[in-house]
Amino acid sequence: MNPALDPPATTVRPQARSNQRVVAVMLTVVVGSLLFVSVQPRVYRAFCEWTGLYDIDRAERVAASSIPARPVTLEFDANTHEGGLIFRPQTTSLVARTGEIVHVVYRIENTRDRTVIGQAIPSYGPQYAGGYVKKLDCFCFKQQTFAPHEIREMPVVFLLDKSLPEDANTVTLSYTFFEVPAGSSNAPATLAESGK
């Protein structure tokens, strides 16, 4: 062995330590990325279940049901408890098949010179049909704040469960907007969330 050709031990060790650090950092990044990717769907699913919004899995389960789809006439109605809001559906009636995702839009106008906070409460005809309306998105999930003279279009996205009883050939989805006093978290919010 020629000592002149061998690198000094002091230069090899720092190089080896530096390489080990790089490998450790890279392994940490890879393991962290794999953990993030594996946890992300569960976090997203938990968020959707917590908020009740965009529950696509529920829609797919209903749509994939072995019960055959059938046509049902859907009627839409709108009412207000106070006179300051003009509230109506853009479509008053349509025919949809059970298991099919339906998008409808309601229009509301605040005719007052002041801000109005409102909460929409749903009701159904026949009443038992409410248990078969699976909402994916709805303005009724939370209180709405309307600026003076604001006009807003608000969507409802839902489907009818295929297990809807055969005698229900027409289902009416009706909303009543109640004005909520500012700073109040009244019962209508709870009723709307539990009303599907």
Rank of each mutant, 00 (worst) to 15 (best):
G84T: 07
D55T: 10
P3M: 08
R58K: 13
F177G: 00
Q20M: 08
F87D: 00
T11Q: 14
P155A: 03
I56T: 13
A78E: 01
S93N: 06
L74Y: 01
T176S: 04
Y54H: 15
G130S: 03
L53A: 12
L191D: 00
A63G: 08
G131D: 14
F141W: 08
Q40D: 13
D137F: 14
G118H: 09
A129S: 11
V30K: 07
P41L: 05
F139L: 06
A182G: 09
D167C: 11
I151W: 09
V104L: 02
D77I: 05
D167Y: 15
A16N: 06
R114N: 09
V180I: 14
A46D: 10
P126A: 05
Q143D: 07
E82C: 09
R21A: 10
P122R: 03
I67E: 14
P14F: 07
T51E: 04
I56P: 05
G84A: 10
A69G: 10
L173C: 02
F141I: 02
I67D: 10
R42G: 12
G52H: 01
H81D: 12
A9Q: 12
S18F: 08
L159Y: 00
V12S: 01
G99P: 01
V30D: 02
G99I: 01
L27K: 06
L159R: 02
I108Q: 08
P122H: 03
V102Y: 04
Y175G: 00
N186V: 02
R42T: 11
P8F: 12
I151M: 12
G84V: 04
E109T: 12
F178E: 00
T11K: 13
L160W: 03
A120R: 05
R42V: 10
P181T: 03
F177I: 04
H81W: 10
I121A: 04
I117E: 13
F36W: 12
N2G: 09
G183M: 04
E150L: 07
M1T: 11
N169H: 15
L159C: 03
D161L: 05
Q15G: 13
H81S: 15
R58D: 11
L34M: 10
Q40E: 12
V37T: 13
T28M: 07
G83W: 09
F177P: 01
V22Y: 15
E193V: 07
P3E: 07
M26R: 13
R61H: 14
N2E: 10
C140S: 12
L35P: 02
Y44Q: 14
F158Y: 06
K134W: 12
V29M: 10
N169A: 13
E100V: 02
A192L: 04
T73E: 11
P188L: 00
P7T: 01
S174R: 08
V23C: 11
R42H: 15
R88E: 05
Y132D: 01
P165I: 04
